[in-house]
Design a protein around this nucleic acid. Sequence first.
DNA 1: ACATTTTATGAAAGCGTATTCAGATATTCA
DNA 2: TGAATATCTGAATACGCTTTCATAAAATGT
Lengths: 340, 340
Amino acid sequence: MPVPVTTKDVARKAGVSQATVSRVLNNHHYVNEETRQKVLKAIKELGYQPNIIARSMALQKTHALGLMVSDLTNPFYSELAKSIINRAKELGYNVIIYNTDTEDVQATYLDFLQQRRVDGIIFTSVELKDSKVEKLVKAGFPCVFCNRRLKLKTSSFICSDNKKGAKIAVKHLINLGHKHIGYISGPNNYSTALERLEGYIETVREHGLHVDNQLIKQGYFNNDYAYSATRELISIPNPPTAIFVSNDLMALAAMEAVLDAGLRVPEDIALVGYDDIKISGHKLIQLTTVAQHMETMGRLAVDELVQMLSRDGGRQKPVHKFLEPELIIRETCGYRLAKK
Amino acid sequence: MPVPVTTKDVARKAGVSQATVSRVLNNHHYVNEETRQKVLKAIKELGYQPNIIARSMALQKTHALGLMVSDLTNPFYSELAKSIINRAKELGYNVIIYNTDTEDVQATYLDFLQQRRVDGIIFTSVELKDSKVEKLVKAGFPCVFCNRRLKLKTSSFICSDNKKGAKIAVKHLINLGHKHIGYISGPNNYSTALERLEGYIETVREHGLHVDNQLIKQGYFNNDYAYSATRELISIPNPPTAIFVSNDLMALAAMEAVLDAGLRVPEDIALVGYDDIKISGHKLIQLTTVAQHMETMGRLAVDELVQMLSRDGGRQKPVHKFLEPELIIRETCGYRLAKK
DNA sequence: ACATTTTATGAAAGCGTATTCAGATATTCA
DNA sequence: TGAATATCTGAATACGCTTTCATAAAATGT
């Protein structure tokens, strides 16, 4: 390992005090130009690199953000994470990433995080109620919720307008003539699931259709559940002719379930997803879906968090942003059929 | 923000010195059981959480690993990253993730990293030659290369046996009767591209076939390139009947190119990918591919890096691991046809 | 020309922890 | 019983940086 060069070494070499070196590094005023040059020269010659940890210690900030992701291999989350990482870098922050497949993992991570390893946290997959996380927010620890939000009103979040997203999706199906529309999603303790369900129900009602509980499947946010729920839906006595699935990955699984049952998409069962992950646009998939703007969502979340950090102490009122969803019409709803 | 509780506070409450609190926290021997209990009680009552930054400062280790990823939205990398993050957590390490779409970004990150923000780095997408990275390795900074490796022999890496992977893929195509096989990949300054090319060429030769440079396309590791290269390949005078594409994402793009040209997969053009990302197994895709074991690769990389950290000072000889690739036969090579 | 302000710099303190050093008490051994 | 050893704990120091405090020199104002 290279011997680390410290400000002290630089100071000795430049013939000044260590404090002066620090002043040069931090662009303090009141540093003589000549002195500054001497110091810069010494820094260069010694290849000095500041020790971030020591700086963090002195400043009481880490310049690192925590990022909680429930499943990084879901393209929705990896796109979101990428956006967050890139924006954080632009603003001079590092991102420590936590994969929280299970809830207890998130809990242990939270303990970690209170050890002042990060200045703030972005949650991408929080439950509506989570006492540990709520405690964190109430204690004033800077948190921003992205994609999924906490019920707690005092918390800031950047989410898709899920209700609206669901509405435009379901409305599209109804306009195509579907009267019997299934809904597959995760549990209602997630804002995404709850709000999309509300949008689904509201739209069905608005069009004078009956809300049939048999058509509503709320289990888990994973492919296996989507697959089995689809199989169940298509085998009930009066099966749906279309299914709105709460995310693209699950919609892909639903698609397999339909095909495995010997039915066709969209002729027998139409499908709409949510997210618009890249693969949904593939020529062989062509999934109709509600697009989310992961890039924007991630960027805004970082911006908001960094803002919170800079106005430390003076707590502002929380920010609540709902991004506009957009229906992407492809072929799994019978677009081609409708065109004909 | 909650007022942070320090060891000093705990010490005062427990009526002992700060040093003793530290001893209790670190399970030092020579601490009276009664004292230990007093301290533990105070810790609990005050809700003390150690300050990781201060600890890092004292110990001169951050307990954080850097992870360089070229494109987190490529499922191959997100699966790899997930594995790395999870394994690191198991071993008590945090992961700071760096997205390096462009090379200059990686360079600026490297400067960051020398600021002792992390104890070591895992590179997943290094070039064979990269003077900045080589300098880091030569300076003794703990680095492990995962997936792609450096040419530098003194560096440790965990990679797929890319040559072998290419060989089994191409052999499979040849066994199916293909005599004219295209190859699409990224530039040869990446070990993955180079080794797979070697495997391709060697296998073609071994089977007495002619290596036709017209069939070899080496441009960039991205979808646009894969698409256009495919279009080019299928429009040359004597076009290939099969194409080996260097990764699944690119193979998916190649598939679109074939279909857009009005040809069929696999009847007109057979395709093999590399990686076996999840979507490749989807019912509508069914891409034949060479599987990599991202989970294992990531885990081993972390294990190796953490080992390097523990045996600090005493530099061991570098570890070179080639993981066994595995051919996953699906339908894009005419498996169904072959079966008939 | 003297008081005041501005500019410039070093010494020292502080961030929160781990650890060394030294001393005190208790225990063991001959 | 005295010496050697083991057990326990507090004071002090170090980690590398930022920043306050103090002080000195230079510039400015009247």
